[in-house]
Design a protein around this nucleic acid. Structure first.
Lengths: 120, 120
DNA sequence: CATGACGGTATCCTTTTCGACACTATGTGC
DNA sequence: GCACATAGTGTCGAAAAGGATACCGTCATG
């Protein structure tokens, strides 16, 4: 069971920073959010965009985000199953946050392929 | 030992979102960052601002952030020990991110004191 | 008949996180 | 002599996160 994160926002008063963090934290949520900001996607479309994320993890993250009201899950009762994920209004409202994260990352985070390979 | 987080940024190409997340993730980093944006603080000053964070955790988080080049640690060789923490340039550059996180949180995160108490 | 795509579950196991608690050194005040 | 404040460190253990792998049903294709 995914277990809802953010059970305790008991940081100092006024600290909604942590609260927000709890929503977008979780190994792959940032990326998922980022991709869904661009377009609605099917399960395996997301999967292909994040090759290092296992199926189980992706399901978990999506479920948590759904529970948090960030994304909407639409199931088509077709015979090759079809499920589409999209952002809710609430999810879309995270855009400035994701944008800020990406902007800082682009400027400050060095993605070193060598190191990534070495670590793997 | 704190163990450096962000060892693998191996998400999909262009995803520096996750990369940034790895820097500000970690239970109390958001709050610490937030408080240090306001002013330089001593160890116990931070501690008093985040009562729910244990001493050990705070030390760990501060150490990680220092290793990440986000904060500077200045030790005064006085006899009641005195250590001041402040943001580096890199740390300060996170301000838009923290601001975005806080803005979204203020609008979307309900800090329910009842629930916090109950959980505690 | 076997294989693959689809969108998942279930189970197992390892790693990481984090909280509790005790302990350190030094100097000051009582 | 004792407690207190400062800024930590060390150890322990529970819980959570996350990775690996196998499995499900259905339909189409080869």
């Amino acid at each position: 069971m995914p277990r809802i994160r953010h059970e305790r926002f008991d940081c100092s008063p006024g600290c909604t920073v942590e609260g927000t963090l709890r929503y977008i934290d979780g190994k792959w949520k940032g990326v998922v959010l980022y991709h869904l900001l661009e377009s609605t996607l099917r399960f395996n479309e997301i999967r292909r965009r994040i090759p290092n994320c296992t199926q189980r993890m992706l399901t978990n993250q999506l479920r948590e985000m759904e529970a948090d009201g960030l994304i909407a899950r639409k199931v088509y009762a077709e015979v090759p199953p079809k499920v589409e994920y999209s952002l809710t209004q609430r999810g879309k409202s995270l855009e400035p946050v994701v944008t800020a994260l990406k902007a800082w990352g682009d400027a400050n985070v060095t993605i070193d392929p060598q190191r990534s390979q070495a670590a793997a």
